[in-house]
Design a protein around this nucleic acid. Structure first.
Lengths: 196, 196
DNA sequence: ATCGCCATGTTGACAACGTCAACTTAAATC
DNA sequence: GATTTAAGTTGACGTTGTCAACATGGCGAT
C-alpha cells in the first residue's frame, strides 16, 4: 500500500506532515503542493479530505489546541496547592507557545479562524481555556485567590499569558535565555498586582 | 499633474491607499496590484519607492506606531494622578487596536517584521512602548505603584494589554458591546492583583 | 465469482499574486 | 539645449490555490 494508487490513510498523514512543515519552515512553508509532495501524493489529493486550505489549517489548529489542553490539564492534575499551580500553568502555556511558535500563531491568529466559522474548532479551543477557568475557581474555593467573577479573573489571566506568548512568538522582544523564569515572574506579578 | 505620466507624490499616496485597503478589506485586500490601481498607477510603480511588498508593509506599520504613540502620549500629557491614568492608557491602547484591527495585526504580527530587520521600525515601536514605561516610572515615583524593576512591571502591563487587544482583534472572544469597560476592568484587575 | 458504484487520487488548466528585465517619459542639471 | 536620471510602464515568469475532467480500484449486491 506504500505506492499504490490509493494512499489509504491520507488524512492523518496530511495533518502530520502539515504540522512538521509548519514547525520546520513556518506558516509560509505550508503550501498545499509542498504538503502533497511530502506525503507522496498529487497536489489536489488533499481536496478529497479538506474542502479548502483553510479547512486543513483549522484541523491543524484543532490538533494544536488538543496538545495545549493536555499540557494545561497536567498542571491541574498535579494537585499542587496555594499559588504554585498558577505559576506552573503560566509556564506551561508560554512554554507550549514558544516550543510551537507557528502552530501557536495559527491557533490564535486570524488566518484560519473567523473567516470560516468552525464550531468544532471553537469547542476544542474552549476546552483548553476551561482548564484555566477550572484552576481559577479552585483557587477561589481554597482562598488562594480573591473572590469575584471567575470568568473575569480568568479572562485577565488569559490575556496576560496570551500577550506574553504572542510577544515572544512574534518576535516583538528579544527572547530571553530563560523563558520559564520570565513566565514565572509574569504570573507572580499578575497575582500580586501592580499597585502599591 | 493628475493624469500625467509622473504621479509626483506617489509614496505618501501609496501609504494612504494601503491603510485604507487594510482598514476596509483586511490584510488580504492589500495586494500590490489593487494598491497600484487604487492610486491610478501601474502594478510595478510602487517598486520605485519600496524595495519589496514587505518594505511597504513596514512603512504602513511604522505609521501605525506613530498613531498609537500619539494616543498613549495624550494620556501621559493629561497629567491625571493616582491610578486613573493606568486605566486610561489601557483603554487608549485597546481602543486603538479595536478601531484599527488589521493595522494592529500588521504592527505586532510577524508578516512584516522579523523577516527583515528594520531598525527604523523598531525605533518607532519603542517610542510607543516608552510611553507606557514613562507612565510606570511616574507611578512609582508618586507611590501609586509598588517598587521594583520598572521594566519588568511595564513588561507585564504591556503583555496584558496586548493580550487583550490581540484576543479582541483576532476574534478569539465574542467582542463585548463595551470594549472600554472591559479594558478598564482588565487594567484594574492587573493593578490589584489576582491573589486574595 | 463478477459487475458496477463511488470514494479516492491524478492530470491539465486558469487566474491572481509578487517580482524581474527592458523600455519610455519628462523633470532636473549642466 | 543636451543629457543624465528619477519615475512610471509593459511584458513575462514562477508560484500558489483551486476547478473540471478523468483514472483507479476496493467493496457490496447480485
Amino acid at each position: 500500500m506504500a505506492d499504490s494508487y490509493h494512499h489509504g490513510d491520507l488524512r492523518p498523514a496530511l495533518l502530520d506532515a502539515a504540522a512538521r512543515l509548519i514547525r520546520d519552515g513556518g506558516t509560509d512553508a505550508l503550501t498545499l503542493r509542498a504538503l502533497a509532495e511530502a506525503v507522496g501524493v498529487s497536489r489536489t489529493a488533499p481536496y478529497r479530505h479538506f474542502k479548502d486550505k483553510a479547512e486543513l489549517l483549522v484541523a491543524v489548529a484543532a490538533e494544536g489546541f488538543e496538545r495545549l489542553r493536555a499540557a494545561l490539564r497536567a498542571v491541574n492534575a498535579s494537585g499542587a496547592a496555594g499559588l504554585a499551580p498558577f505559576e506552573a500553568m503560566g509556564v506551561a502555556y508560554v512554554r507550549f507557545a514558544v516550543e510551537n511558535p507557528a502552530h501557536y500563531r495559527l491557533m490564535y491568529g486570524r488566518e484560519a479562524l473567523a473567516r470560516r466559522e468552525v464550531p468544532a474548532l471553537q469547542t476544542t479551543a474552549d476546552a483548553a481555556y476551561y482548564e484555566l477557568v477550572a484552576l481559577i475557581t479552585a483557587g477561589q474555593a481554597s482562598g488562594a485567590l480573591r473572590t469575584g467573577d471567575p470568568e473575569a479573573l480568568a479572562y485577565v489571566a488569559w490575556a496576560t499569558v496570551h500577550g506574553l506568548a504572542s510577544l515572544l512568538v512574534d518576535g516583538q522582544m528579544e527572547q530571553p535565555d530563560d523563558v520559564e523564569a520570565l513566565a514565572r515572574l509574569t504570573a507572580r506579578t499578575l497575582l500580586e498586582g501592580l499597585a502599591g
